[in-house]
Design a protein around this nucleic acid. Sequence first.
RNA 1: GCCCGAGUAGCUCAGUCGGCAGAGCAAUUCACUCGUAAUGAAUAGGUCAGGGGUUCAAUUCCCCUCUCGGGCUCCA
Length: 653
Amino acid sequence: MAEIALKLPDGSLRTLPAGSTGADLAADIGPGLAKAAVIVEVDGEERDLSAPLDDGAEVSIVVADSPQGLHTIRHSTAHVMAQAIQALWPGTQLAIGPPIEHGFYYDVELPGGKTLTTEDLETIEAKMRDIVAADQPFERHELSIEEGLAKFADHIYKREIIERVAEGDLAGEDAGEVGDGIISYYANSDDFLDMCAGPHVPSTGRLGHFKLQKVAGAYWRGDVTRPMLQRVYGTAWATRKQLAQHLAMLVEAEKRDHRRLAAELDLVSWPEELGPGLAVWHPKGANVRRLMEDYSRERHERGGYEFVYSPHIAKSVLWETSGHLDFYADSMYPPMEMDGASYYPKPMNCPFHVMIFRAQQRSYRELPIRMFELGTVYRYELSGAVHGLMRSRGFTVDDAHIFCTREDVQAELASLLEFVLSVLRAFGFDQIQAKLSTRPSEKSVGDDDIWVAATAGLKAALETAELDYVVDEGGGAFYGPKIDVDVTDAIGRAWQLSTIQVDFNLPGRFGLEYVASDGARKQPVMIHRALMGSIERFFGVLIEHYAGAFPAWLAPIQARVLAVASDHEDYADKLVADLKAAGFRADQVAADDPLGKRIRNAKLEKLPYVLVVGDDDVANGTVGVNRRGGEVERDVPVAAFVEQLAAEVADHT
RNA sequence: GCCCGAGUAGCUCAGUCGGCAGAGCAAUUCACUCGUAAUGAAUAGGUCAGGGGUUCAAUUCCCCUCUCGGGCUCCA
């Protein structure tokens, strides 16, 4: 009997009878692997375990508990959900159902325009459990495009996908649905089939650790002019434990929601009278913000930046020259007519900084010029996009613009990235990732040389900083390449915060120039840099990262002094005064409520320290120190506490 | 902007199948003066988001608007 030789990931060779499948290979290696296997990768291509393997192929078994395995489980679970929905509402049209981070969704259109409710999710879940219990096989079938069009004639969305493939237009979102020139579908029972590129787990019994989460509207192909479909989201995992952990993380995320904590901790609010996306900062929130901004200013000053200010509105000519009115008018607040001119609230600070550069003739000796402004901008975000502090209509950008020579770009980018990382780390973010976006394939400005040099400069900066990064080919703006910096928060969520963008466009639009050493007029390169990005959003991320329990250096109140009884209030007063004199933020609550109650309130406010003073302390000049998340320490000399708090503030711990 | 859902006291929520609006916490007052996460009593607090309609009667049913939430789209 003929045999095939297979190369395994460890480099070893294994021979099996011709016609053997991935499942056979896994079983041959061991029963544990056979049980864990979900699909097989053959020469870098994912396939069903039931597919025959090719002689000489490099083969690796993909197990459930791997990124690819999870991907497959989520994809297959999406299919089971579609099957359940179709069983419950016959005539349902299926659109697309891809895996996503942590889960999957499926876009469907129910007969009669029915919309799904949260209650329906339970019904669908129950049906899915039946399908899982039935352990139906995922059977793959392949068709030509013509056969596919015939087979899916009644499936309006699937047919549209096939038609697009036939035209050679294989868009990213369809990639999960169809292969290259071949239409495949999976049938796992007599009455359900779904067009899909696969691969899938061998049978529905391999699934089960899932939960449906929410239902929402989604446009077909993301196009507002196309029908609104029902999108059902779910999460799926390899094990029960993973699912439980994920659900626990979601509960934790809800507890940390900055909108909830902003109200509970009296930080900011959004009075209806102001309009959507416009917040007012209460004293405690404003206190944290001031500390954030002061720290930022101090770092920028040390980093060689010059501080500038600009007005909130400017005449239309500025925005015409910058190009904003051509490209971004939809996101700008409408103009105010004054003295025959139109004044627009600013959506960005850069044109103003350009004006400052242009205010006098610049020499190469002055460059690089680094301008910094905490500039408040207004952008007309769509009403449905506004979201707490994370997406506001008015917000403040920690905006820096650097004007330098082409020769200086690389060195400037390297020190810039270093600066950004250092400040982010000071705010408690130590898991940082980046994305490098390169020249778009369509229209873009600037010659090749400068794109190549700037992109290489960004890349070198990332490598010098030893930062993990991915490359988004063609993802840059038309005016230059960029780096986006993400941080991972305390519960594993990524937030994009900083951005460093090289700009070959604005200097030309505004005719910027400097005099080079040879006397020639040259155009400077401009680098845009936002570090926290929006101060509002950064604050929101900090609230969620710290769950409202700010470290001592940022806490709006660092220590609350509580007198055991009224007799000790004079001593408490003095302690508060001494702490304030030493530069700390402290307050006191009178002994009108029992001590336990006052401690509880301080704990609910998530204050770093509660200081309790009674008879012993008055007699000995000590305090009782109740540290957030720590043990109670009695009889601590005041000087010792001050020293400890000062160290904590200095270290940002 | 689009789809779906929600809006009752400062906060968290109950309630009214159409008939005078309820609790806990918070607030205020009084008493209690206490050594590490809730002392007790009393008082006050609402055009039931806003506007219109149906009705003898609307917080409740219907329509519109506003705001919020989850998504879609967008995020220079």
